[in-house]
Every structure is written in structure tokens, then in C-alpha cells.
Nucleic acid binder design. Structure first.
Lengths: 323, 323
DNA sequence: GTCAATCATGAATTCATTTCATCCGTGGGG
DNA sequence: CCCCACGGATGAAATGAATTCATGATTGAC
């Protein structure tokens, strides 16, 4: 509803000229010829029906009216400049915003990030994690899909758990989804015996509910199926909406969790967490890098993605170690 | 020196769209098609390398980043709008700014202005008077010329004393310059006799110095010449840089002034000032209406000019009366 | 289920902006 | 004191940015 403004090009030409009190300098600043400025100012004067400059011999002087509105004009453009700067700073060449789901961020990305920072100290990496993706949504629903798309639009690079199908986005698989039971060595030593998968019936099962969200079946069901056994109470035991919580529980010796070993490679290497069985079950879902087409073009994004994929490759080549 | 802004058209399209959360409405506001808005926003996103909107089914949502810079953007455009409004209000269709030299304003224009206001109550007439024209400048100098031109650029209509030669301006002669001696009736009654021009030698001469400025000779010299007499001390007596001051002195009975009777038609009609001699000397200078080409096009200017000229015509037809 | 509403998209078009070439007048250096 | 280089004005031509048009896709609403 704002009253219509005169062409902004003309306004800007006027502002610059008034600031320099010189069309030539204004032209210089705006990277056009002096003729363009002269035309623009005459056009503006025409539009407003007001003289803005007194034409002197080889110089110009501001009209009173022009003088009086100049501060407002300058402030206006200054505000616009700030607004644009605000955006540009967020996307400055050396600023990289990475989004990751909470578990991946805290258990995989953050432990490795310091190495990237050492490698590229000039890049300002900002990690943003949020859980809107993980609020209870029907598996593979539009809602989940859209929240990923939306998030990917907000950051340069998004690392999330999903099915890898995000049309219009640039996608790389970061880690394939493998699951295997994990528990603390203390539990293994002091608890009921745990030699064969069937021994699991005597243990507390900790549930990482991502499986329910993305696969329609729990991780435990999948793994036990693959192991060829049936568990009488496969859904019993504590449930966690985030992998990281289930993992913490396992670390505390509260039970056995079926989840992605890649998320605990540090613990596996240190022995604070162990995988009692060799069987790893690959599932169709996985961790993916998602990047919107705009961000994908940025060079820092390319650098970081390459580094991430390399890290993941090493992870896969030497599972259970953080190299 | 301000960092370069993205094309302002795109910024404005974004601002409007963000405000309405609708491209269609924004398009409506800006009098373009929705397609134009869509293009502009995509272009801006391209430029900044940032998504500004999440595209939903039939609606759009602001990106966090867009959200955060929107207030600044709005303020910026609001400032610009105010700046332009400031100018436009000064030149609103019903606002008329008239400039006049101090003497003409106070002794001729103002006494008549109320009639115009009664005639056109819808017009907001603003009178601006200033004396930069009357600072001591060589007669007919560039400085004087330029100050008139400059003033004429600041107002809609300028009524000044001068030679009527202002190239590029629209000119009308308001009043021809006639001079005649004037004094208070008291002085005429109680002072030395004043029947013939030669009697003037016994009186104090009050000098309106405009004559020196514009004609190179004082008004008294011109009049005495035309009267065919020589005055031994034609430059003696008080000098005034403004007619109005010399006239006030004459009203106070301090002496006799040679000046424009049109400036004192009210006093002449009332008898508070009298012209002892019938001889009126016409000089080449006069009062002119000057109007810059931009202002000259405005209809209120035309109305006011016509009225002024009519007033002046009546003045001339019935000298010594304010009708 | 169908319709209407909203946004996307690409080619064509319009027209705003800029440049080019030239002119003008003078202020200041030689 | 003279002249020329500088800053601005100007009009036609060229450029290219902004807009429209025509069409498609998708879905929310009735």
C-alpha cells in the first residue's frame, strides 16, 4: 500500500550525486557514464516537478528542497545496504553454514570438525542443528520431506538421515545405514551372557526410534530378522526419539541398543562401547548430504562436501576407528 | 563508497512479496504481473546466493534469513518513501510557494493575498521572502542574476524587481517601474513649502537604494532629471537598502522618498501618504514574475499567475487605489 | 472430483537505462 | 591573458533489464 516511489534508479543516482555534489563522481561510483546520471536526474526532476540541483558553470548545487530530503534518502539507502549486507555476511565467501540432525551432529560431525578447521582456518563453519525433522511425523510423509527441503534452503549443506530422495537438491550419500547391537563393555562382562543373538532375550533392549520413523520397522526388528531369530518382546524396553539418547543409555550400561556404529566410532575405538555381534544389517535409508542448488555452487560448499565425503569414506574403510 | 546494492527493482519486489507473503498481491501493488515478481525474486536469490522464500504449494514462506533482514528492508523503503513524500508534499497539487522580494511581499503581495485565499480556499499559498537578492552586488551582475535564477528554482512563482531577462524562465511583467516622490501629509502641511520640484532642496530626501542596484542611478536622480531640475545634494539624507524601510521612514514624516507608488497604493488611498507631484517617471526595470519551466506547468501556478497579473492590471488602471 | 488459485518457466517483447558523440561555457594553469 | 580541459547538457542510438505472454504444474477448497 505504500505510495508509489519514483524509479529507484533515479533516486539512487540523485542520492549519489547529492553526496558528491558532482555527477561525474556519482557516475563513477555507480559505474555508469556522467550522461546517464544527468539523464536520470533530469528524469527525476521531471517526475517530481521540482528542481533538485542548481546548475552552475562547472558544478551543481543542491536545491533547498533537495537538501532537506537528502538525509532521509541517505538513511533509506543505508538501511537497504545494511539489510543486504546482513544477507551477504551470512553468505560471505568464507562463511559456511552446515545443518545436521542432532545425533549426527553431536556424535559424528562435531568430533571431526576440528580437523576441517585446522585444514581450512580461513573458513568460518557454523553448525546448526534442529529437530523439527524429528517431531513425530508419519514415515516418509510430505511433512518430513518438506521440513528437510525447507531446512536445506536455509543452510549451505545439510546432513540428515533419510531416503536420499529430495528432487531439486544436490544429493550425496554420506554414510550407508548399517545397524548392529551395541553395549557397554561393563554390561558385557557383568550382565547375563551374550554370546549368541538369542541371548538378547535376557537383556534390556534400548530403542532408537528413527527406525520406526524412516523404515516403518524398528532397528531391532530389522536386525533380529537378519540374524534369523525371533525375540518374544522386541518392543519392550526404553524408547528414544534420538539416536544420541539411546546411545547415551547404552554407554551408561542400561542395555543394548541397535543403531548405526558410525555414530560411535570414537567409543568403539576406545572400547567404551562394544559391538557384541559381527552382523551389520544394511538398510535402504542412510545419511545424506543435501544442498540446495544455490548453495551448491559456492566454492566453500564444494570444499566442505569433499572433505565430509572423504571422512565418511575413511570411516567406512576403517570402521570403528576415527583415524 | 556504499557497497553496491543489488538491483533495487528486485529488492522492492522482494519487500512487497514478503510483506504480503504473496507474489500475486505484490504484483498487484507494484502494477506488474505475478510472473514479473517471480522472475525478480529468483533473480535476487540468484544474486545473493540465498533462498528467500520456501516455495510451498500455492503459497510461499519466508526463509529465516529473509525474515531477519525484512525489517531493515522495510525501514529502508519507508525512509525513501518519506523522503519522496517530503518533496511531493511541497509540490502537492494544492500547495503553491510564492517568492517575493521583501518590499513587494509586505507592501503589495500580502495586502492582496487574502482576496486570492477567499477566491481559492483550496489552495495552500506559502509566501517565502528573502533578501539574498538584495545583498550588495554590482548592478546587473551575474551574482544577482544567478541568485534570482536560483530562487526561481526553489519556488513556484517568484515576484522580483529586475530587468526581466532570465533566459530559460517563464517571465511576465507584473508592474512597470514608475517612481514619484512620496511623503506624509503631515510633512506636507507642517514642513517647508513643497509646491514645485525645486522646493525639494529644502527637504530631507529619503533614498530607496534599489535604484542604485538596478539602474546604476538613484531614483531621486532619475526623477529630478525628468523633472528638469538639479538638486545640489541629491545623495544627501538617509539611505535604505529596502524600499519598505524608506517607505516607513516617509510614513513617519522623516522626509520625502522617491519610489514606486504601487507599493503604497493602500496608503495613498487612505491619505496616510501623498504624492506631491503628478510626474511619474517610468524606468526600464520593473517587477517581474519569474517561474521555472517545471513549476510553470502546474495548474495552481497558472491560476495564481493569472490572478496576480489581473491584480496588477487593476492596480495600473486605477493607480493609488487598492480597489 | 473438479475447479480455481498460486507459483514456475522460458521465449518474446517492450521499454527503461545507458552509451556515444557532440556541444556548451568557464575556471584555472601556463 | 589566453586557451583548453573539465563538468555538465543533450539527442539519437544501442543495450539489456524488466515485463508480459502463454503455458504447465500442483494443490486447497467447495
Amino acid at each position: 500500500m505504500p505510495a508509489s516511489l519514483p524509479p529507484l534508479t533515479a533516486l539512487r543516482a540523485f542520492e549519489a550525486t547529492a553526496r558528491h555534489l558532482s555527477m561525474k563522481k556519482a557516475a563513477n561510483e555507480l559505474n555508469v557514464t556522467a550522461a546517464a546520471i544527468s539523464h536520470q536526474i533530469q528524469f527525476l526532476e521531471e517526475q517530481l516537478g521540482v528542481r533538485l540541483f542548481h546548475r552552475r558553470n562547472r558544478r551543481i548545487e543542491l536545491t533547498e528542497l533537495a537538501q532537506s530530503c537528502l538525509p532521509m534518502l541517505r538513511d533509506g539507502f543505508e538501511q537497504l545496504r545494511q539489510a543486504v549486507d546482513h544477507i551477504r555476511n551470512q553468505r560471505a565467501a568464507d562463511v559456511l553454514t552446515v545443518g545436521a540432525s542432532p545425533s549426527l551432529a553431536s556424535r559424528w560431525l562435531m568430533p571431526r570438525l576440528h580437523r576441517f578447521v585446522l585444514l581450512h582456518p580461513e573458513i568460518d563453519v557454523r553448525v546448526s542443528t534442529q529437530m523439527r525433522q524429528f517431531t513425530r511425523l508419519p514415515s516418509g510423509s510430505r511433512g518430513d520431506f518438506e521440513s528437510v527441503i525447507q531446512w536445506a534452503d536455509e543452510v549451505d549443506l545439510l546432513a540428515v538421515f533419510g531416503n536420499g530422495h529430495y528432487p531439486g537438491m544436490q544429493i550425496d550419500q554420506l554414510l550407508p545405514l548399517e545397524i548392529t547391537p551395541l553395549c557397554s563393555p561393563a554390561l558385557l562382562a557383568a550382565g547375563p551372557r551374550l554370546k549368541k543373538p538369542t541371548d538378547l532375550t535376557a537383556h534390556t533392549l534400548l530403542h532408537d526410534d528413527r527406525g520406526m520413523l524412516y523404515e516403518g520397522r524398528s532397528f531391532w526388528e530389522r536386525w533380529l530378522d537378519a540374524a534369523g531369530i525371533r525375540h518374544p518382546a522386541v518392543a519392550s524396553g526404553p524408547h528414544f526419539t534420538h539416536s544420541v539418547l539411546a546411545i547415551e543409555a547404552a554407554l551408561a550400561g542400561l542395555g543394548i541398543v541397535a543403531t548405526t556404529p558410525a555414530l560411535v566410532s570414537g567409543e568403539l575405538a576406545r572400547g567404551t562401547l562394544v559391538a557384541p555381534f559381527a552382523l551389520r544389517v544394511a538398510l535402504p535409508s542412510g545419511y545424506f548430504l543435501v544442498s540446495n542448488p544455490l548453495a551448491a555452487r559456492r566454492s566453500v560448499v564444494g570444499v566442505f562436501r569433499a572433505w565430509l565425503l572423504d571422512e565418511a569414506r575413511q570411516e567406512h574403510a576403517a570402521p570403528g576407528s576415527i583415524a
